[in-house]
Simulated scan of single mutants.
Amino acid sequence: VSTSQEVEVVILEVDAEKRRISLGLKQAQPNPWESFAEAHPVGSTVEGEVKNSTEFGLFIGLDNDVDGMVHMSDIAWGMSGEEALSLHHKGEVVKAVVLDVDPEKERISLGMKQLERGNVPAANAGSSLQRNQVVTVTILAVTDGGLEVQAGDDGAIGFIRRSDLGRDRDEQRPDRFQAGQKLDAMVIGFDRQKKPNFSIKAMQVAEEKEAVAQYGSSDSGASLGDILGAALNKARDQQN
């Protein structure tokens, strides 16, 4: 700001005895961390300049003059945090994935290794997975196109497309999921880099076909609800 410039402020305090009024300029402006969260949801990719390198991570300059931090453990796969830190320097422009935004604490957590899936260890080649296999996966990132997931705790990393999130259209919304959530999905194939593609919809269809095969078909007079109900009851009996 400069002299003679007009600005909007918020009155913070009025001290009648001292004839003093305390004003706040930033309180009249949008919260930059909230604005950043709206423009860059978790899972989106951002680019910025390395403002500082500390013993525990990198600080990256982002939009609206806010900084995000990449913890040393989220810089690169297959090496120690100290080794990963030594690969980057102040002034370097890097890309990263938004992992978390906390406007109250004015903190943005970023990850760079999440963009390097091709360099994730051999387990990610997907060789241990088989087509039509049902596995438990953990959601790493939620995007408009679907979910990036990892089989098990440290297994192959793949993707569930938006259209494979469920049979019904209202189930095919990525925003109903969140990072860190675990769910079951079926392996439906592999891409050119041998990364697995998963599908919740294919698993649901397979489970339905299996239930119909075991408990009868609608041609026999049983409704699909009766068939699936019988399968569910058997599953519960086996658990008990």
Rank of each mutant, 00 (worst) to 15 (best):
T3L: 15
S4G: 13
E6N: 14
E8D: 15
L12K: 15
E13L: 11
V14K: 10
E17T: 10
E17A: 11
I21A: 07
L23N: 02
L25M: 08
Q29R: 11
Q29D: 07
P30D: 06
P30N: 08
P30S: 03
N31Q: 03
W33M: 06
G43W: 01
F56H: 10
M69D: 03
A76H: 12
G78F: 09
E83Y: 05
L85G: 02
V94A: 00
S109Y: 06
Q114L: 15
E116Q: 14
N119D: 13
V120K: 14
A123H: 08
T138P: 07
L140S: 07
T143G: 05
Q150I: 10
D154G: 13
I157V: 12
G158W: 02
F159P: 04
I160K: 03
R161I: 06
G166F: 00
G166Y: 00
R169F: 10
P174N: 01
Q178E: 13
A179T: 12
G180R: 04
D184W: 08
V187S: 03
I188S: 02
R192W: 08
Q193S: 11
N197P: 08
I200R: 10
K209Y: 10
Y215I: 06
G216W: 02
A222G: 09
L224N: 04
D226V: 12
L228E: 04
L232W: 09
Q238T: 13
Q238W: 07
Q238G: 09
Q238I: 13
N240M: 14
